[in-house]
Structure formats: structure tokens, C-alpha cells
Design a protein around this nucleic acid. Sequence first.
DNA 1: AAAAGCTACTACAACGTTTTCGTAGAAAAT
DNA 2: ATTTTCTACGAAAACGTTGTAGTAGCTTTT
Lengths: 336, 336
Amino acid sequence: MNTVNLKQLAKELNLSVSTVSRALRDSWEISTPTKQRVFDLAKKMNFQPNPYASSLRKHRSRTIAVVIPEVANNFFALAIKGIETIAREKGYHVLIYLTNEDGSEEMSVAANLQSGRVDGVILSLSGETKDMRHLVELQQRNIPLVFFDRVCDSIDAPKVMTNDYESGFVATEHLIKAGCQRIAHLTISMSLSISHKRMKGYTDGLLRYDKPYEDNMIVHCEGSDEENYKKIRDLLASGQRPDGIFASVEKLAVQVYHACRELGLEIPGDVKIIGFSNLVTASLLSPALTTIAQPAYEMGKEAATILFRRLEKKYILTPDDRVILPARLEVRNSTL
Amino acid sequence: MNTVNLKQLAKELNLSVSTVSRALRDSWEISTPTKQRVFDLAKKMNFQPNPYASSLRKHRSRTIAVVIPEVANNFFALAIKGIETIAREKGYHVLIYLTNEDGSEEMSVAANLQSGRVDGVILSLSGETKDMRHLVELQQRNIPLVFFDRVCDSIDAPKVMTNDYESGFVATEHLIKAGCQRIAHLTISMSLSISHKRMKGYTDGLLRYDKPYEDNMIVHCEGSDEENYKKIRDLLASGQRPDGIFASVEKLAVQVYHACRELGLEIPGDVKIIGFSNLVTASLLSPALTTIAQPAYEMGKEAATILFRRLEKKYILTPDDRVILPARLEVRNSTL
DNA sequence: AAAAGCTACTACAACGTTTTCGTAGAAAAT
DNA sequence: ATTTTCTACGAAAACGTTGTAGTAGCTTTT
């Protein structure tokens, strides 16, 4: 509990509270010698202005919220790092909220943020989010919102994303060129636009190369890890086994490896695998995993930069800036 | 910017601000019908109390800070998840600060936290931290501090850690029993007590099994990733090549894999490897990595639980509770 | 010499809550 | 019938800061 405040400094210096406040903010209204006296004492007493008093008065908290589905995942961890880096530079504080892919948790977080606790929000949708009212309400309260990765197309807000459609296409194309005849796609919640886009890239890829689209080659992995694993294993154990798999997220690619191991399938001999992933160990897996790697750190930095531009009203930009940072294909042995 | 406040509710209901405030907190001083009227209107107008006004008045922010060296690392990411889970349950908010292993960043964060912005702090030391004054000052301001993993022995505060000494011993013992004659230890900053303990476990392990301790088998990896990699490669390329390596942190184990690949060394044939790690892909590496896995999520939860116990003054415990959550050895092919 | 302007400060209200103290009116006790 | 107690509410201060509106004392302008 902090206890040294402006009043104490003022009394000690025989000045008014307002003078001390202004001196500390280096106002031109205060004479240099007075400023010096104030600075010295503030330093000596280790004065730290109460941020809550300041926020209350100024209607600005210099705090932002980052709302993400999970953190134990290289993509989001790197994004946080990017956001935190920019926030630090700008003197902002970062509150973190994990929704655990749960739409109702996301709603309650958003509702809470309407209190004015933060000046702005950077958000990546949970897989379960269907209803966007909570986000619209945030905007109605004039709390700037920036999406990253899992964006919401129906809300008019800046978005930082990767080229999901192209990446989906490229991934599929890559598998086809590697000789795959029957390619499966493992996707997460189809309420996410990234899922749609990646899937569209996949289907267009099949189309472009005259490969048939088969319904049962689409595996919706929206359940628990165990349920997803079971679905993947069933796919691989079925008579209709695919010879190529495109995983839309990292954890699904990892599960394919486990399933192949359990079933005694060889990668890339029996099945080739490509997945969206930021695994640092991709190249060390057995075999090394071909990935679509998103520029997670840069996306975090970009999202934060856009948000701060809004907060500092420095933008005469379009109301709906949309930044696309391309993912890159990293070919490794799993699709040899 | 939030705009509906107590005053507006009060006017609308023909009540005083104090009555509305009390009604919302379900005070016994307010009649049931009045409470109901207040609740209804608050809900209808989507009233969210201003947290800054509240914090200012109550001298409590219901916010904690988590200060960690990095986040793009499974251990810390899981710890954050644990902390956030408990914080959510308790209705607390979580500010996150990354020190990037930089002692001066840690200092400036700690100095800033003296403002009273948070009710408590959960911290894992940066590798560069030598001077602990900034943390002592935090405590002097009555801001409870809980350490986890990279604790500071010289400060009297609760600590949540793993059995680093035993784990170091077990790791070394495991390598010896696997047939290693010359075991190297890759360590990070020796100003961290975890490094000391893990190292002591290592040296005691050597001693116990009559293996010689050699200075040049200790590699201090405190520099950039590139520098560390070079040191590791040099070690493996030297005439004095070890046949076992104990990496004290995850990223160093990963670098050993890369170095072995570059040098054409076979794991575990030429070199066996064990490392502290929470990699989800440990079992999928080529070969699978034997790990000492820390219960990261549980450690985060435990640290948060202890902190909240302090914040809610519910503890009649020892002033210096120290919780040790044991790591577990997961034997895989890299030490076959 | 009076008016205007400037410099360096101060007083005070305001931000939105919570809390302490107080009180009107009804019910209960004497 | 008077006093006491209780119930349900209100007025106002306080938290620590910042912004607006002064103002005393000096210098400059007319």
C-alpha cells in the first residue's frame, strides 16, 4: 500500500498540491528552481503517483486487455510477447484474459471490460463464440477493439491476420504436388472465419488439381483433446485412409503424429502431414514437420501498434484497417 | 468510455447515490423491494462500476501482476494459465510483464508496481537480476510477493518451486545408469538459485557414482541464443566430447539436438540427452527427449493460491510458506 | 499614472465510488 | 403517552489526482 502522495510532498515543500502535480509533469507554469525542489523530494521519497486516482480523473487507464483462447501455445505466446513489447514502449500496461475457447467466458470478460478498466482491447475469438453482441457493446462504449488471427468479419474493427485462404491453398497444393491423392483436412470450430478461409483454400486446392472433395475427409475437431484424438485415429484407421493430412492448427498436427505412432503408420510414407504451427521443435520431430508458420510475434506487434494509433487518435486512416501478414511454408520431411 | 454511473441510477430511481451503492452490494441496510428496483435498472442500463473509483476509495485494485522472464516457453505459459485460472475464480485481474531476462527491466517493472497498481505480485526472477532492492522495496510497501520457480532465497516471501536439487541429481544419475562416463551440464545464469541447486544435484550425482567432475563440462549459457548455440556446438565438437548432456532448461536441450544434427552426432548413440522441459512434443522428437517435467500449471495455481490467501488475510501460516511441487522424470529414447 | 500583461503560483471542483455518520418515521417497550 | 429501538434511507467526506479559474505581485504598455 503506497502512502506517499502529492499532499505530503506539498506540505513538505510548502507548496500547493497543484503546484507539485504540475511540477512533476514538467509544466511551463512552474519555475525551474521549484521544479527542481519537487523532483528532488519526489525522488528522495520514492513518490509514485497513484494510477487509480489518475485514471479516474483523466478517464484513461493506460491499460489494455489481451483476450485470447489459450496461452500454452506458441502462436499466442509469441503474440503476447509482441503486444507486451509495444505496450512497454508506449508506457501501457497489459491485462491478460484467457477464454479457454469458451464463448461464455469470452462474454463475461467482455462484459467486465465495459467498466472502463481498459482503454482498448486486443482480441482473438474463442472457437465457441457465436454471438458477437458483447463485442459490439464494447465498441459502443467507445473502447477500441483490434482483432488478431481469429477475427470477426461482421464487426467493423481493425484486424491483423494471416493469408489464411492462400495458406490453405498452398498447403493443399503442396500435399498434392508431393503425390497425395486423398487429402484430409482437420479443422477447428467452423464459426471462426480462419477455419472457413483455410478450408476454402483447401477445397479450392482440390478443385484446382482435379482431386475429389470427400465429406468424410473433413474432420471437425471442436471437442476435447481426447475426442479430437479419437476422431483423428478413427480417420487414419478407417478403410478410407487419407494419404495426406492438412491440420489447421498446431495441436491437431501433433495429435496426428501420436495417432500414426499408435497405428504404426509411417510419415511421410503412409501419410504426409502439413499443419499450421509455430512449434520451435518442428524441425526436430520425427520426421520433421512441414509447417505453415504464422508471424506470431509480428502480428502481436502490429495489433498493438494499430490499437495505440487509435488510442492516441493519430490516425486519419480508414476506420477498418486490415493488415495481412503472410504465413510462410516451411517444407520438411513430413511431406517429402 | 463508460458513462452510466451511480448518480444516474440514483436519479432515475429517486434514490440517493449511497443507497444505490449499498443496494448493489446487497447490503442488509436496504429493503428487498428497493434492492430489486436497483438491480433491475442496473441490469437494464448495463451498469458496470468504475473500477478505478472503487480502487481509489478502497485501496484495493483486485489486480495482481505476473512478472516473468519470457512467455514463449511452455513452462511459463502454463504457469500463467494456472495463475489466470485461480485469479478468475477469485475475481482478480492479471497484469503481465515480461522482463526478457533483463535485470534492469525487472527493476523498472518493480519500481512501477510500487504505485499501488496491484495488490500483489507473482514473480520469477530474470537471469540477470543481481540486486534485489527493488523487490525488498515492494515488500516494504506492503505489496505481497510470491516467487515461483526462479525464487530468491535472500528474500523472506512465499516460494513455489520444484525439487531442483533432487531433479538435478536424478537427471545425472539417470545418465550415469544409462552408461555415460562424461556428463556435461548446460546451465543458465548462476545468479539464479535454481541453477545452483540443479548444478549441485549434478555434482553430487557425479560424486555419488565416482565420476570425475570436470570444469570444462560446465557450459554457462547466459548469452544470446546464437552464442549459446556456439558454445554447445564447440563442446560437442571438441576432443573432450561428453557422452551425456544434462540441460537445465528446455531451450538448451533443443539446441543440443540442433548441434548434434549439424555435427552428425547420433542421439543417444554418441550423446545421451536429458533436460528440464515441458515440451508437448518431447515424445515426438527424433529421438524422443527424456525430460524432467515441472508441474508448471500446478505451480502457477499454487503461487496464485498462496498470494490470494495473503491478500485475503486468511493465513495464520508461517510467514515464509514454501511449497515444493516435485518434477517428474520422463524417460524416453534420448537416454536409451 | 492607469491599464494591460506576465509569471508563478494557489484554491477548488471534479472524477465515481465507498463509508461514516446522521435521521425520519414506524414499531416496540416502558 | 413518552421514550427507545429498529428499519431504511440520505448527506457528505474521503480516496489522490488533474484541470479550471483565479490571483498576487511584478513588468510593460499607453
